[in-house]
Design a protein around this nucleic acid. Structure first.
Lengths: 337, 337
DNA sequence: CTGAAAGCGCTAACAG
DNA sequence: CTGTTAGCGCTTTCAG
């Protein structure tokens, strides 16, 4: 193992000088810096992470807690995790992966052992067990998702109200007058509160502003549930031509059901999905959708904890603006027959 | 921060005694141990990871390098990563997540900085850039997947030869006489060598042993490519009733194409997929498949590096036995018309 | 069975 | 602009 002391000897300077060349915490003459950097390269020196953490009281590690239960769409989780890792590297940090299998106590372990300087929680639940521990340890932290009580916490999430509004706008712009929001399953409403309700609120308000008449129906993920939901909507409002769907599982069923009942997409009915781009692209027809900005969520979370490290107060919600991508599943409203 | 010294004072023993209670490296009287453990609990002590790493020269961390390019099926990658993390915890280790974005030099950085005691590489390529560095640093390591030259390395992978054989056996048992292997795309054959060829070898040998006549065709993932492949197979061998498919992307297309040409699955044609269970379960009909044993791959990889840590030589291939799950896509061969 | 004490490699005052 | 040095908290000889 090459040590800093060896580098110092090789370069003919003191250990502290090498340390300062590395950290940039004081000015070094050009000549000295070059000599040191040369020695570092020649010896293949890498600072010992543990020693550094011990002396500086900072580990340069961010802990990332992912849920075991994998009901968030897995590729999205993965994309967030990758985004967090690559962003962390830009701040010279590494990422420690924790699963919730260890339980909420992992928060205490990581905070208490100096393993990580900050914690990012993914897939935060309404009433997340980890949050009290987080508050108690006072660790730097960012949450992806919104808990019931986000006071004093730094949270990142998609702006679901704006998402609902954007979807309503798109359908209104295309001339649709009667629209329906096919929502998440009941179970999702219970656990993950907030996101479904927020979408509905934004959708409802904008639909009203644009003079649309609209319906909202929660929906299970199975074929049967989707069929039931759709037929009830069409019975109640046969003139419905625009659908907003916030339910990945129901999406393929809905598409085949619409075809089955003779409503071609997008000629007779338009569908706006709220889902990851993957899903939208793999459906047929490809879906006009508001995507989940996974990359940005991960990046923002890292930026939040890094800002905290430099003393900033980042408390509050970071709500990301939705972007709607027009694909093949939406088109002008059919002329009233 | 609670330190070991504070625990020692609180318990009325020396620091070394506390250390030995923690490590179990020498015998401690029952009374002392109890006092120390009580103090630890009461003070909420957690050993400082960096200090421990510095003093012991072991970080208790395993580095996991995942590919950025995400052509392995993402949920499988995720499942492996989770399996690695939970298994690591059983050995009191944590997992550091590295993406290949940093490049192969991440191997050097991690090995050189004492950040991790061992490295697990996922989605290893035939001629992986990281492998020379791994050999050079001599770090403890395990690979998931097989490189071209695995000599001196510890590798874990599904036994694809046995996989091919199992698939052939299943079709033979059901009375099929003419079968076809629809393989991966050409590009996959190039990069990921080994796995496709190994499947083919196993399939071909067993098919021959069982007296089946068989065909092998690589296949792109698009609808068009799949259609072309299928029609050429049926032209050349109209009597083909059994298909083995090692190509996730082609799977849905193949199923709808078979329906289209009037071959009902499983009445007229049987399909065995080689794919993650997810994919098999979401197809309709649900697919008889040989699954990718993600959980076991992750677990084995951790076990390999932990064994290396205790001085064992684990060099060699760990090939996991395939398991075939019968679902709805295979059935008895139709009687010859 | 238990203590005392010497570092592990680095950072950050404190000096100059 | 550079050097000296006292720890950071833990492990592990060496003594007893």
């Amino acid at each position: 193992m090459v040590t800093l002391a060896q580098v110092a000897r090789h370069a003919g300077v003191s250990p502290s000088t090498v340390s300062y060349v590395l950290s940039g915490k004081r000015s070094i003459s050009e000549a000295t810096r070059r000599r040191v950097e040369h020695s570092i390269a020649e010896l293949g020196y890498h600072p010992h992470a543990g020693a550094r953490a011990l002396a500086s009281n900072r580990s340069n590690v961010i802990a990332l807690m992912i849920p075991l239960r994998t009901d968030m769409f897995v590729p999205v989780m993965m994309e967030i995790a990758i985004s967090i890792t690559t962003t962390a590297r830009r701040y010279a940090h590494d990422v420690l992966l924790l699963t919730s299998e260890e339980g909420p106590s992992a928060v205490k372990r990581v905070a208490g052992s100096g393993l990580a300087d900050a914690i990012i929680l993914m897939d935060v639940e309404l009433d997340d067990e980890r949050i009290p521990l987080l508050r108690q340890t006072g660790a730097a932290a960012a949450l992806i998702g919104l808990p019931a009580d986000p006071s004093g916490l730094s949270c990142v999430d998609l702006d679901f109200e704006a998402t609902g509004a954007v979807a309503a706008d798109h359908l209104a712009d295309l001339g649709h007058r009667e629209v329906a929001l096919i929502g998440a399953a009941e179970t999702v409403y219970r656990r993950h509160t907030g996101f479904a309700e927020r979408t509905l609120a934004g959708f409802g308000r904008r639909a009203a502003e644009r003079g649309l008449s609209f319906l909202h129906r929660p929906c299970g993920g199975s074929h049967e549930a989707t069929a039931g939901t759709l037929s009830r909507i069409l019975e109640e409002r046969p003139g419905t031509t625009g659908f907003v769907v916030q339910n990945e599982a129901a999406l393929p069923h809905l598409l085949s059901l619409l075809r089955q009942v003779g409503r071609a997409v997008p000629e007779d009915a338009s569908v706006v999905a709220i889902c990851p781009d993957d899903v939208a692209l793999h459906a047929s027809p490809q879906l006009t959708s508001v995507s989940i900005p996974a990359e940005e969520m991960g990046r923002r979370a890292v930026e939040l904890v890094m800002a905290q490290a430099s003393g900033e107060d980042t408390t509050g919600l970071t709500l990301l603006a939705p972007t709607l991508t027009v694909r093949e599943s939406t088109g002008p409203a059919p002329h009233a027959g």
